[in-house]
Simulated scan of single mutants.
Amino acid sequence: MQTLYLSRLQHYLFCPRQFALIELECAWEENVYTAEGQVMHGKVNSGGHDTRGNIKSVRTLPLGHKSLALEGVADVVEYRTDEHGVQIPYPIEYKRGKPKSHRADEVQLCAQALCLEDMHNCKVTEGALFYGKTRRRHAVTFDEELRALTLEAINDCRYIIESGITPKPIYSTSKCRNCSLKEVCHPKIFNKNAKAWLSNQITANLNEVRQVNNNDD
C-alpha cells in the first residue's frame, strides 16, 4: 500500500482536485499564502524538546500508522502525565490565518492522533489547532464523528491514488481565488462541459476565419 502523507488529507478536504494535482501530477505552485504557512512552520519546526511541569513538548515529531500506511510530522506533541503517571500525547498543529468553515484542519490533526495511538498503544482524545491570526489554541475533540470523517477521507484519497484519475474541478470563488494551483487547475475552463467548450472553440475559430475572409474582400 502506497504511503499517504498526513498533510495531503488537508488538501483533499479543501479540494479533491487539488489533492490529485499534487499527488498524481506532482503539481505545486507557491503564493503568498503558502509562503506564509512555510514561514510559520519554519519557526515552530525547530526540533528538540523541553519540559515544563508535567508536560513534555516534542517538536517536529515523525509520525506513522502501519495498517493505514500514514506518514507525516507533527508540529508539536505535548506528552501530559496523568494521575497514574502515564504520558498521554496531545498533538498541536500550527496554521496560518484563522479557523475555517470546513473541517480540513481538524481531519489532519485527527489523523495525527490516529498515528500517535498506533505508535503508543493509547487513546488520544484531544488536540489543538493554533492559528496565526487569532494567536490562540482551538481545542479539537477526537470524537466518533471526526474519526469517521478522517477515515473516510483516507479511503477517498486511496481511491484517487489507486484509480489515477484527477477529479473534475468544481469552481468556487472563495476557494479558487486564493489557491496556488489555480493557473494549473484552470477551474473555470475545465468546469465546463467538454463538448460545449469544444463547440464554442470551433465556432470562435470559424468566426475568425470569416472575419479574415471579409477583410480580404
Score class of each variant (00 low, 15 high):
residue 3 T to Q: 11
residue 3 T to V: 14
residue 4 L to A: 07
residue 4 L to D: 02
residue 4 L to S: 01
residue 6 L to P: 01
residue 6 L to S: 02
residue 7 S to Y: 06
residue 15 C to R: 05
residue 20 A to W: 02
residue 20 A to P: 10
residue 21 L to D: 03
residue 25 E to G: 02
residue 25 E to T: 06
residue 25 E to V: 04
residue 25 E to W: 00
residue 25 E to C: 12
residue 26 C to W: 08
residue 26 C to E: 12
residue 26 C to F: 11
residue 27 A to S: 15
residue 31 N to D: 10
residue 32 V to I: 15
residue 33 Y to S: 11
residue 34 T to N: 07
residue 38 Q to L: 08
residue 40 M to R: 09
residue 43 K to N: 11
residue 46 S to E: 09
residue 46 S to C: 06
residue 48 G to N: 06
residue 48 G to W: 06
residue 49 H to V: 01
residue 50 D to R: 08
residue 51 T to D: 03
residue 52 R to G: 06
residue 53 G to E: 08
residue 54 N to A: 10
residue 55 I to Y: 07
residue 56 K to V: 05
residue 56 K to P: 00
residue 56 K to A: 07
residue 58 V to I: 14
residue 59 R to T: 07
residue 60 T to H: 12
residue 63 L to Q: 05
residue 66 K to F: 12
residue 68 L to M: 14
residue 68 L to S: 07
residue 69 A to F: 12
residue 72 G to P: 05
residue 74 A to S: 09
residue 75 D to F: 02
residue 78 E to S: 10
residue 79 Y to A: 01
residue 80 R to M: 02
residue 81 T to S: 04
residue 82 D to F: 09
residue 83 E to T: 10
residue 84 H to C: 11
residue 84 H to T: 11
residue 84 H to A: 11
residue 86 V to F: 09
residue 86 V to H: 10
residue 90 Y to E: 05
residue 91 P to G: 09
residue 96 R to L: 03
residue 98 K to L: 11
residue 101 S to A: 15
residue 103 R to K: 14
residue 105 D to N: 15
residue 106 E to Y: 08
residue 108 Q to E: 11
residue 110 C to R: 03
residue 110 C to K: 00
residue 112 Q to L: 06
residue 113 A to K: 05
residue 114 L to K: 03
residue 115 C to L: 06
residue 117 E to H: 04
residue 118 D to H: 11
residue 118 D to W: 03
residue 118 D to M: 03
residue 119 M to P: 06
residue 121 N to Y: 08
residue 122 C to G: 05
residue 123 K to L: 12
residue 124 V to D: 05
residue 125 T to H: 10
residue 127 G to C: 04
residue 129 L to K: 05
residue 132 G to R: 14
residue 132 G to I: 00
residue 134 T to R: 07
residue 138 H to R: 06
residue 141 T to Y: 08
residue 142 F to Q: 05
residue 142 F to W: 04
residue 142 F to T: 05
residue 143 D to T: 07
residue 143 D to N: 15
residue 149 L to D: 14
residue 149 L to C: 09
residue 153 A to I: 00
residue 154 I to G: 00
residue 154 I to L: 01
residue 155 N to C: 01
residue 156 D to P: 00
residue 157 C to W: 00
residue 158 R to Q: 09
residue 159 Y to N: 07
residue 159 Y to I: 08
residue 164 G to A: 07
residue 165 I to E: 13
residue 167 P to V: 02
residue 167 P to A: 01
residue 177 R to S: 13
residue 180 S to N: 05
residue 180 S to W: 01
residue 183 E to Q: 08
residue 184 V to Y: 10
residue 185 C to Q: 06
residue 187 P to R: 01
residue 187 P to I: 01
residue 191 N to R: 10
residue 191 N to W: 08
residue 193 N to S: 12
residue 194 A to K: 13
residue 194 A to E: 12
residue 194 A to V: 13
residue 203 T to D: 11
residue 204 A to G: 07
residue 205 N to W: 13
residue 206 L to N: 14
residue 208 E to W: 02
residue 209 V to P: 00
residue 209 V to K: 10
residue 211 Q to R: 14
residue 211 Q to L: 02
residue 212 V to D: 14
residue 212 V to L: 15
residue 212 V to W: 12
residue 213 N to S: 14
residue 214 N to G: 08
residue 215 N to G: 15
residue 217 D to K: 15
residue 217 D to E: 11
